[in-house]
Amino acid sequence: RDLEAFAERFKQRRIKLGVTQADVGSALANLKIPGVGSLSQSTICRFESLTLSHNNMIALKPILQAWLEEAE
Rank of each mutant, 00 (worst) to 15 (best):
S38E: 10
P34I: 05
L31M: 14
L17Q: 04
V19N: 11
V24N: 01
G35T: 06
K61W: 10
A59Q: 14
S26M: 12
K11M: 02
A22V: 06
A5C: 06
A22G: 12
S49N: 12
R46P: 00
V24R: 02
L68S: 03
R14L: 01
G37V: 07
C45M: 07
I44Y: 13
I58W: 09
S40D: 14
E72Y: 08
F10Y: 05
L17F: 02
A27D: 10
T51C: 11
K32L: 07
I15W: 04
N30Q: 12
L31T: 09
A27N: 06
V24M: 09
Q65C: 10
Q12F: 07
P62V: 02
A71P: 02
L64R: 00
N56T: 13
L39R: 02
S53H: 05
S42G: 11
N56W: 12
K61M: 14
I44D: 02
K11V: 07
C45L: 09
L64T: 02
I44P: 00
E70H: 03
M57F: 05
G25L: 12
C45E: 15
R9Y: 12
V36I: 15
A22S: 11
T20S: 12
Q41G: 14
G37H: 15
T43Q: 04
Q12D: 10
E4Y: 15
R1W: 10
N55K: 13
T51L: 07
V24G: 00
L28T: 04
L68F: 08
A71S: 09
T20A: 08
R13Q: 10
G25N: 03
V36L: 14
L28D: 03
A29I: 06
V19P: 00
L50W: 01
S49C: 07
L17C: 02
G37I: 03
E48P: 01
V24E: 01
L68T: 02
V19K: 15
A27S: 10
E8I: 13
P34N: 04
F47S: 00
A7T: 03
L28H: 01
L31Y: 14
K32R: 11
A29R: 13
A66H: 09
S26W: 14
A27I: 06
L60M: 12
E8R: 14
R14H: 01
D23C: 02
A27C: 08
G37Q: 13
S53P: 15
R9N: 13
G35H: 04
P62L: 00
Q41I: 07
K11W: 02
A5N: 15
I15G: 04
Q21G: 08
A7M: 02
L60W: 02
N55P: 12
L64N: 01
L3T: 06
T51S: 14
L50D: 08
S26T: 11
A66D: 15
K11I: 08
S53W: 03
E8A: 08
E4A: 12
R9W: 10
L52K: 09
F47I: 02
L60A: 10
L39Y: 04
I63E: 13
R9H: 15
F47L: 04
A22F: 12
S40A: 08
A22H: 12
S42Y: 03
V24P: 00
G35W: 04
P62E: 04
D2L: 03
P62F: 02
L28Y: 02
S40F: 02
F47V: 00
D23S: 12
I63Q: 04
Q41R: 12
R1C: 04
S40G: 14
N55Y: 02
D23M: 09
K11E: 00
G35C: 04
E69V: 09
E48R: 04
S42D: 15
F10G: 00
A66T: 11
Q21M: 05
L68N: 08
K16C: 10
I44S: 00
K61D: 00
L68P: 03
S38K: 10
L64K: 01
E4H: 10
H54D: 09
S40E: 09
L60T: 05
P34G: 11
L52W: 00
I33K: 05
N30W: 06
M57S: 03
M57R: 01
L50H: 12
L64H: 02
E69Q: 13
S42H: 15
H54C: 05
V24T: 00
Q12L: 11
S40Q: 07
N30K: 14
C45Q: 15
A71V: 07
A71T: 10
I63P: 06
V36G: 08
S38Y: 14
L64G: 01
Q21P: 09
R13G: 12
L68M: 04
N55G: 13
D23H: 10
A66L: 07
L64I: 05
F47Y: 04
D2N: 15
A22L: 08
I15E: 08
N55M: 07
R9I: 06
A71K: 10
D23Q: 14
S38V: 09
V19M: 14
S53V: 04
R9P: 01
N30A: 10
G37F: 05
S42C: 06
T51R: 11
K61Q: 12
S38T: 11
G37M: 09
S40H: 08
V24I: 10
S38F: 10
L31W: 14
R13I: 14
R14F: 00
V24L: 09
N56D: 15
E69Y: 06
T43M: 12
L52R: 01
Q41V: 09
Q21I: 15
E70V: 09
D2A: 08
R13Y: 02
G25I: 10
I15R: 07
K11R: 11
L17E: 03
E4M: 13
I33L: 11
Q65G: 11
G25Q: 08
Q21K: 06
K16S: 13
L28R: 03
Q41A: 14
E8H: 13
L50P: 01
I33N: 05
L50I: 06
D2G: 08
T20C: 06
Q41H: 15
H54L: 12
N55Q: 15
A5S: 09
S49T: 12
L64A: 01
Q41E: 15
E8M: 10
R1I: 08
V19H: 10
G25H: 11
N56V: 15
A29Q: 15
K32Q: 13
T20Y: 00
G25W: 10
E69S: 11
P34E: 12
Q21A: 12
K32M: 08
G18N: 01
L60S: 02
Q65R: 06
L31C: 11
I63H: 15
L3M: 14
L60Q: 01
M57Q: 01
N30F: 01
M57A: 06
Q12I: 12
I44A: 00
Q65P: 04
R1S: 08
E48W: 00
G18E: 06
A27K: 11
L28A: 03
E8K: 13
N56E: 15
G35V: 07
K16E: 14
N56P: 04
A29P: 07
D2Y: 09
L31D: 04
S53Y: 03
G18R: 05
V36E: 10
A71L: 05
T20H: 02
G25V: 15
A27Y: 13
R9L: 15
K61S: 05
I33F: 08
D2F: 05
A5F: 14
A22E: 12
Q21L: 13
K61N: 05
R1D: 10
